[in-house]
Write a protein that binds this DNA or RNA. Sequence first.
DNA 1: AACCAACCTTGGGTGGACCAAGAGTAGCGT
DNA 2: ACGCTACTCTTGGTCCACCCAAGGTTGGTT
Lengths: 145, 145
Amino acid sequence: MEVEAQEAPARLRGKPSWLISKTSARTHRLIAEAMTAVGAHAYHFAILAALEEFGPQSQVRIGQRCGIDQSDMHAMLAELAEQGHIRRAPDPEDRRRNLITLTETGRRRMVALDAAISDIQDDVFGVLSEEERRLLIGMITRVIG
Amino acid sequence: MEVEAQEAPARLRGKPSWLISKTSARTHRLIAEAMTAVGAHAYHFAILAALEEFGPQSQVRIGQRCGIDQSDMHAMLAELAEQGHIRRAPDPEDRRRNLITLTETGRRRMVALDAAISDIQDDVFGVLSEEERRLLIGMITRVIG
DNA sequence: AACCAACCTTGGGTGGACCAAGAGTAGCGT
DNA sequence: ACGCTACTCTTGGTCCACCCAAGGTTGGTT
């Protein structure tokens, strides 16, 4: 006698917010596991990706781009610095700022994390065709606006 | 000089999991605010909806249907009972169980919460056409599978 | 009777998101 | 030159959703 997953109420099943919440929770769990397994964190990937795409920048700027709070950013950068993936140096043009720079090992790390996370995308959204997946990305992007 | 939301890295923008996570966070916040404003909780709606659709049932059964943990279920039911929206009575056929029953005020409460939550769906997903919204629901439903 | 399974209850733990205050620096108007 | 405001980083918290574990009670089985 296994524990069967019962059918959810129609009033929940019909709400996009509920469906999205469940999907988000699932991917979040999978990504968290994958990141922990390699001593990383989902935020690490976001930060490294921002540095790779936009070059050296301040902590706040990265936070604005990725939607990460200042205090969390601080903790994440400490981890990334200790792992040698970034360097922190005071900005010579504005000594209030820490200029965060991506190191070469950091760039490789980013690529590796991207691969791992992309695999999870395939696991979760693999039931959709390529066309559908593009459609989904397009629609949610508009929703986020 | 406002704080402009910077563009997110393409490596994030292209990941369905990231888009969905952001959307989920936003709707979650809106719903939480709306529920708190009327002394409710998102779980309340889920529980009441399950009772309305499937009739009186045990706590575990509701939890399985809605994806709510036993301990959280306990707390939520205590709140709902105190507000008079449900009744707990030992199941005469199996005295291990608490049979949860929806009261008339509970049914009305559920309808009201449904309206509030549906409004938020419109706020968030209103940029999509009806057709797109159906498409989105269909695709995510398949993803959850 | 003995044993296992299911249910409710209680308590606690964890991680992500968020908030507030303080210290240092920059820019600006006066 | 001065004071004021704005910005940045750092530190130390809060809050909540989600999850886990143990104990006590009842039901079913052998």
